[in-house]
Write a protein that binds this DNA or RNA. Structure first.
Length: 744
DNA sequence: ACACTGTGAGTTTTT
DNA sequence: CTCACAGTGT
């Protein structure tokens, strides 16, 4: 029976508040309750709004208790925001975490499993292993199995195992077929065994175990199916197979599964997110209703047109037509820089200009494809005195000292946690070296017990002391029921960690102490049990940390920008082999993902887009290499949408300019000094190759061939060609085409 | 046990 | 180039 017929209510005032200001499609999406619903929500079309209003609507109109509504997101940040917005709408606090079911997939799994893990053979207080813990366990296993970790890298093995897990392939069913897969297969079996032995789950296990729990325990499944009368899922395009199955199972009873997603914003398929789940929604749920949210409230029509044109080139998608009533706004700017420093200076000067126009730095974001690109930007922004914050770098909970303290806490809570023990048995130094530890590991493996168990009366003094400390802490925790902050202080004291850092007396040690102090303060306010705190800290990322609201510009990767929006967005490195990334250009599916990534970048901007290209870029070890403009450029509407500007440091024979000028000449604004290059040549232009006085015997450096000596010069000025002897070969080079630097 | 040196590898990363 | 780690030397 359709849900709305069960409990008809009159329209109330609060309901009005919830439903007003929604457009017709949003209204339909919010009020539809009859069955499975797929909401295809374009960028900036009010997807979070629909989700939160839907929860509020169900609660207010039908009196559905909030704990009967499950809302799943991918990030803590999204969950947090959703909670805040629902609270605001219904005027009720969702404070009670027991009854709050607006959370991430992993938090959902953790919450259910902490209650029922015994059904799967785990103890109650299992711990969650983060990627660092995973890595150390894999390394330990590979060393146990005598696998050479030079040729087979632990990280690659871990990746393969995770991939298998996401495809629901168990260790037993893992197909071998190659040397690498053989290794993975062996490690996988052992890895899984040891996780269970350590009473630990990795991120993938959380989902797999939740799935197993629901699949194999009718009573538990029924209980949650009945509890969750409504299941809402955010970012459905990013869902993987286990997540999909969890949703399917939980919603099987009431069939009220409401999912929101945007195929064009799937950028995590390399982590197991599978577009098929959203593409097949209507097949999986034949009675499903589909609603398209196509009105964009975020960006200018210029930005939207550019984005739409780009994403049209993808084959794997569902056609939609994102439109807006917003104004046309300013044209996007495409800046062609000489190199990455030039690019960064362009970014910095433009930010400076924006800030001088009283624009808040919080409304400015600088996006790039790879983290390594942030270095030059940071350097130049610092020079320009522009305050910035790099989003996504190190997580607080990933700092060494924090992980050490957490490892102690974990050991106190679960002495089976061998990975935690291995981490801190010699931190601070107790003169327990690799050899000693390896002996313990081997002995434990032999007797099939945990490392701590093989430390006995007969063990070395240092080992006994260590075990004693852990036992003391455990007793203190169990019997005195200490709050976590007090327990951390006790750990600092008893383990000598505090003493160790204090005697070190370096700036680094001081920072570490401060970080631990911060952790103590943070835990003072929480009422979590140790168990809850530990799983929570593993499921936390830096995006969730409460960073004091500062007036700074934001730097981040395209990936981390998803879900955010800014008035002004700078997209750096709009180049072949950067965006699309070199490792994606040959694979059609990955190329489409790169295009989606670019689309995500574009659609972050509300008011104006600044795109930049560096005609030369230094990557890692290599010399500065010529880069071509991204193929995506040729997919954009340039006329009326993009104004192209060229750095004064470039000459008109630059490879990018030559490639572009026929088509785009009218749009290109070359710097006057370059166009009038014969007069008034300034230093920057002098530095550039075509005005160079080349002589025989000069040593020059080519980006492609390295250093060489000029053997012969032919011609003069711009048209000069040079015969150059490089290390292994002699080449005829026309300096106007390739980058050539004078060495001496 | 620890410090030093040489080698190799280096997209993206919601949890 | 720069970081991480394995291997060597004291």
């Amino acid at each position: 029976m359709p849900f709305r017929e069960i409990i008809p209510f009159a329209v109330t005032n609060s309901e009005n508040k919830i439903l007003e200001k929604l457009n017709p499609q949003q209204l339909e999406a919010v009020t539809y309750t009859d069955g499975p619903l797929l909401i295809l929500a374009g960028a900036g079309s009010g997807k979070t709004r629909v989700l939160t209003h839907k929860i509020a609507y169900l609660h207010t109109k039908f009196d559905v208790p909030l704990h009967n509504i499950l809302a799943v997101t991918f990030t803590n940040k999204a969950a947090k925001e959703m909670v805040a917005r629902v609270e605001n709408l219904v005027g009720v606090s969702l404070e009670n975490k027991q009854n709050r079911w607006v959370l991430t997939f992993h938090a959902l799994a953790n919450k259910i499993l902490q209650r029922h893990a015994d059904r799967l053979g785990y103890d109650k207080g299992f711990v969650v292993y983060d990627s660092n813990d995973q890595q150390s366990l894999i390394k330990k296993i590979m060393s146990d199995l005598d696998i050479d970790n030079k040729n087979t890298k632990p990280n690659a093995v871990l990746g393969a195992i995770s991939e298998a897990k996401n495809k629901l392939i168990s260790p037993e069913k893992y197909e071998q077929g190659s040397f690498f897969r053989e290794v993975v297969s062996k490690v996988y079996v052992e890895y899984q065994k040891q996780l269970v032995r350590n009473n630990a789950m990795d991120f993938d296990d959380l989902l797999l175990n939740l799935l197993a729990l629901l699949r194999d325990n009718e009573d538990i499944l029924k209980k949650f199916q009945q509890q969750f009368q409504f299941v809402l899922v955010d970012e459905y395009q990013d869902i993987n197979l286990p997540q999909y199955m969890v949703c399917y199972l939980l919603a099987a009873e009431h069939k009220r599964l409401f999912v929101v997603g945007d195929i064009d914003q799937n950028i995590y398929s390399w982590r197991g997110a599978n577009l098929q789940n959203i593409l097949n929604f209507e097949k999986d749920f034949p009675q499903a209703k589909v609603i398209l949210l196509e009105q964009n409230y975020r960006s200018t029509s210029t930005i939207l047109n550019i984005s739409n044109q780009l994403i049209k080139h993808n084959k794997v998608r569902k056609e939609k037509n994102l439109w807006t009533e917003n104004e046309v706004g300013e044209k996007a700017m495409l800046y062609i820089a000489n190199n990455e420093y030039d690019e960064a200076e362009h970014v910095a000067t433009n930010i400076q200009r924006l800030l001088s126009e009283k624009i808040s730095p919080k409304e400015v974001a600088v996006l790039y494809r790879t983290n390594s690109m942030s270095r030059v930007l940071e350097q130049v922004l610092t020079q320009y005195n522009i305050k910035y914050r790099v989003y996504g770098g190190f997580r607080f909970y990933e700092r060494k000292e924090i992980k050490d303290i957490l490892a102690y806490l974990r050991l106190v809570q679960n002495e089976k946690d061998d990975v935690a023990l291995m981490r801190i048995i010699n931190v601070p130094s107790r003169k327990i070296g690799k050899i000693t530890l390896q002996k313990l590991i081997d002995e434990a493996a032999e007797k099939n017990v945990h490392i701590i168990d093989v430390i006995t009366e007969d063990s070395a003094h240092s080992l006994k002391i260590f075990k004693e400390v852990i036992t003391d802490l455990t007793i203190a925790h169990r019997e005195k029921n200490l709050p976590i902050s007090k327990l951390i202080e006790l750990i600092m004291q008893k383990t000598g960690y505090k003493e160790w850092l204090k005697t070190e007396d370096s700036q680094e040690a001081i920072t570490r102490l401060e970080n631990i102090e911060e952790l103590i303060v943070a835990t003072q306010e929480s009422e979590y049990t140790l168990e809850e705190f530990l799983s929570l800290s593993a499921l936390m990322s830096q995006q969730d940390e409460d960073v004091p609201e500062e007036e700074t510009v934001t730097l981040m990767t395209f990936h981390s920008a998803k879900g955010l929006e800014f008035d002004f967005v700078f997209l750096c490195g709009f180049e072949e082999n950067v965006l699309p990334h070199s490792q994606s250009v040959d694979i059609p599916e990955e190329l489409e993902e790169e295009r989606r990534l670019c689309y995500v970048g574009f659609t972050r901007a509300r008011k104006r887009l600044f795109i930049s290209v560096a005609s030369h870029r230094t990557a890692f070890y290599a010399d500065s290499r010529p880069h071509d403009i991204s193929r995506f450029f040729y997919e954009l509407p340039v006329e009326n949408h993009i104004s192209i500007q060229v750095s004064r440091k470039l000459n008109q024979f630059n490879h990018i300019i030559t490639a572009l000028r026929e088509d785009y000449l009218p749009d290109i604004v070359m710097n006057a000094k370059v166009l009038n290059s014969n007069k008034n040549v300034d230093r920057e232009v002098m530095d550039d190759k075509i005005f160079f006085d080349y002589c025989e015997g000069d040593v020059v450096k080519s980006a492609v061939f390295g250093e060489g000596v000029i053997v012969k010069t032919i011609g003069q000025g711009k048209g000069i060609s040079l015969q150059i002897r490089f290390r292994n070969e002699t080449k005829l080079i026309l300096p106007k085409y390739g980058k050539l630097e004078k060495v001496r």
